[in-house]
Structures are given as structure tokens and as C-alpha cells.
Amino acid sequence: MTDQLTGSSSFPMVLAERVVKAYGSHVVLSDISLSVDRGEVVCIIGPSGSGKSTFLRCINHLERLDGGRLTVDGELIGYRQSGDKIYELKPREAAQQRKDIGMVFQRFNLFPHLTVLENIIEAPTQVKRQSRAAASTRAMQLLERVGLAEKAKAYPASLSGGQQQRVAIARALAMDPKLMLFDEPTSALDPELVGEVLDVMKQLAKDGMTMIVVTHEMGFAREVADSLVFMDGGVVVERGTPSDVLGNPQHARTRAFLSKVL
């Protein structure tokens, strides 16, 4: 673990230290420590309710932390530290941090009242104040990259699930994020559509994007992930290379989980 967070770019992209999150008295994340390096692809697996989504939502401050500290690219998320005091960020400052972190949801969450192109340029024009023309040019490149250039003028409801999720990835990429979070991006898809989304994600990993992916696609984890994290009961039970964790799990809980899903 690094102690100082200033100066070099040697500090990790994401550093979670003893992160705690509770809803009322229900402690969802009891003690999460995890570090993700630049360009690293980390897959998170774990049983339902183990807090995987909650942890992702903490990383871009959709949820407020109750304990521990979390930095992205060396910057404390959700709070500002001055001396030994910690101040809550203003909503504007929190939004500023989120624009550098892309997120892809299980249920796509495309904006149904906007066309595919309008979905992608919405945040660049509204948040980054890019011109419509510049944002559209960039959006068309991204659509090209996810193989959907011909759907630019279509509305999301007329697309298949796999196409919608690829648009959602393009929408997140349009903000030029330094980190991408994926929350079960293929779980809502028909089996024959999973591949096209995973292909886009593989390409993204190859291009050097730092990615944290909650997934049940063990094949994808094995092929793409640099490391695999098994979460259960609000803690990181085990972390290692995919082949180690899948092939030679060290903990009984990991073995029990893998025996059910593999």
C-alpha cells in the first residue's frame, strides 16, 4: 500500500482503504480495501447482496461513504481534506469528480426521449460545454467504434438490448473518463447478445482503459481481467489472478461460491 498520495503517478487509479457503507443499521460494506492500478482491469464476483453494486456506486460517489477513504487518481472522492479536518464536497464539486468516471448499468439507463446521438452528446454539451458539432463528431467516432454508426438517429426503444448497452458504453466514453465502472453489463441481455457487448469491453481493455467490472461472465474474467476479486458479506474475501482465484481458491467461501456458478 502506498502511504503518500502526492507527487508521482505511481499511486493507483483507485485506492479504497477500509471503506464502510451502511444503510441505517444495515452494514453493506463492512471493510473494503482495494487498489486498482492504471490500465488494470479488475473483475468483481460475489453472491447477490454482497455489496458489489454498492461499492461501485461509492467509487463515483452516487453513495456517500460512512467510513474509510477512497481516492480516484489521487483525489479523495466525496470529501476534501484540509489539515486533519474532512469537509463534505459541494454538489457541484462532486459532479466535477463524477464526470471523469464512466459508469455502465445493468439496465442500460439510456435516455428514452433522446436519440442515440443525443444520448451521447448530452453530457459533453451540458457538462463540458462542448459545441454540438464537436460533440457530434466525437459521438460518431464512438458509435463507429461500438459498431452502431447507422443507429445514430434511432431512439433507444427501437434497439436490441445488446445495441442499447453498446450505446451506453459509448455515452460513458464520450466524457473521456479515466476510469470505467461496469455493473453487471450483460446480466439483462439475452445470451446471444452478450458477446457483442463483451467484445466492445475487451477492445476497451486492450486500449488501456482502467476498468472495474462486476460480472458473472467467468470466461470474460479469465480472458481479460488482470485480477479477480471475490466479495462476500461486505468484505474482499480473496483477490488474485483469474486463473488462481478460479482454479485454486484459497477460501472456503470462494470455493462454495464457485462450485455454484461454474
Binding site: 471523469d100 439496465r107 439507463n109 435516455f111 448530452e122 451506453a168
Partner: peptide
């Protein structure tokens, strides 16, 4: 609610989320 979540995650403010989404 997934709509405002997505727009918040894109860095849009609460007012922008309301007005645009």
C-alpha cells in the same frame, strides 16, 4: 430512478438532471 442515476453519473448537476432528463 435509473434515469437520474445515469445522468448524475455522467457529471450532470441536479438542476441539469431535472431540466434535461
Amino acid at each position: 430512478p435509473g434515469q437520474s442515476e445515469a445522468s448524475t453519473a455522467l457529471g450532470m448537476s441536479w438542476a441539469q438532471t431535472m431540466r434535461r432528463i
